[in-house]
Design a protein around this nucleic acid. Structure first.
Lengths: 162, 162
DNA sequence: GCATATTAGTTACAAGCGTAACTATTGATT
DNA sequence: AATCAATAGTTACGCTTGTAACTAATATGC
């Protein structure tokens, strides 16, 4: 009671988080329902699919901002699905070079088609101008992230998730 | 391989989610380290603190976009801390009217002060113009949310968290 | 008035998560 | 060469989460 003026609805972390959840939700429904993919698996697929060369798990984590253990589990999941294969590095056997199988590449093409369609849908929902404003704002946040470091080992909000 | 043009870095759901995590992180560190609060507890505190009247758990969930069970657990946590008290509704005993105790209000004042300071810090990190652009973009997303409904019972991305 | 549906809130359960500890391998120092 | 540090990746553990089932109370239809 006795408002000191603070309103959660105007608090940027809250607004960003809620918008992110909403926007992610309808796309996640697609890859979850149609492919039984988790979000880390989708991100891993997207990272590998867009790369010309095989990647290591650490590179995937850096590319798509995921914790080591998330990548490890996602790689395992995609491997079981036969969408990904590992190849060990001859010179340094700690590394695993990960690449999509043909089936994985096929799934990647289908999912990126869905993703692009969804992005267009968002564009028409928001309007060009608002989308540009949002993108510019996000770009500023991304610059700030690079400056102040994305926090050491990528700690996330809570134990559970969002 | 064989890029069809899709890049995760340009995908709005991904960008929003990453920005939200980054922005939330440094504030969450404050209420976690100094008050051992979880995010649902902080949101519940913020909802009750800014309300003139007591609220029900359902109202809190609607106000701060949280799932029933999250609210239930957060209320329990704040109650144990003696920051919140329940009062049953005489006319309809299904309802519980929740209000902050003086200790809860004190914590609310301290935390909103931290929140406002953090918001100002963000403003200076991003610059006024970028902050306005971001806010305008988020507003458009929020309008779209109201149109297409925040999904029925507030399902979240994954089981775990982010 | 009585059965059925609806609503507020809680809880058991399974799954995902991050931390920290672990294995395996390589690099650096001496 | 031998030790110690650093790195890639995996895994055990405890915690948080949403789903679904649950209890308790009220509303609705007949």
């Amino acid at each position: 009671m006795e408002a000191n003026g603070f309103e959660l609805e105007n608090f940027l972390p809250y607004r960003l988080n809620r918008a992110a959840e909403f926007v992610a939700l309808r796309f996640a429904a697609q890859y979850k329902a149609r492919y039984q993919l988790t979000r880390p698996e989708w991100r891993t697929l997207a990272a590998l699919g867009s790369s010309e060369r095989p990647m290591t798990a650490t590179e995937i984590g850096a590319h798509s901002t995921m914790h080591k253990t998330k990548v490890s589990r996602a790689v395992f999941g995609l491997e079981q699905r036969r969408w990904l294969k590992r190849e060990e590095d001859g010179r340094d056997r700690r590394f695993e070079h990960l690449a999509l199988t043909p089936a994985g590449e096929q799934a990647y093409r289908e999912l990126t088609a869905l993703a692009s369609a969804y992005q267009n849908e968002l564009l028409s929902m928001l309007g060009v101008e608002n989308m540009q404003a949002l993108s510019a704002g996000l770009l500023a946040v991304e610059r700030a992230m690079r400056k102040r470091g994305t926090a050491s080992p990528l700690p996330n909000p809570q134990g559970g998730g969002t």
